[in-house]
């Protein structure tokens, strides 16, 4: 059985991009602030369109923002 892990660098990227707030990122990507908080905390895996939106907002490839690791247990 495989267990998947999705990690992200959103917090780091926010601070590297003029220290934009969670609310600003939420407004730019068309979601609520709670969703950005949940994604940052790794509690919610965003849809592919939202993941692309977030990556494009930072001007980086999607792999820079999200990392997927599959662990076999």
């Amino acid at each position: 059985m495989s267990k998947s892990n999705l990690t992200n660098n959103i917090r780091k990227l926010r601070f590297e991009n003029d220290q934009i707030t969670q609310q600003q990122l939420a407004d730019k990507t068309g979601v609520t602030r709670q969703t950005i908080i949940a994604i940052e905390a790794g509690k919610y895996a965003p849809s592919l369109p939202l993941a692309f939106k977030i990556a494009r907002n930072f001007g980086v490839p999607i792999e820079t923002v999200f990392q997927y690791e599959a662990e076999d247990s």
């Binding site: 068309g30 979601v31 609520t32 709670q34 919610y44």
Partner: peptide, 10 residues
Amino acid sequence: KAKIEFDERD
């Protein structure tokens, strides 16, 4: 005042 009140997670 929030622009978005409902999204894919909701």
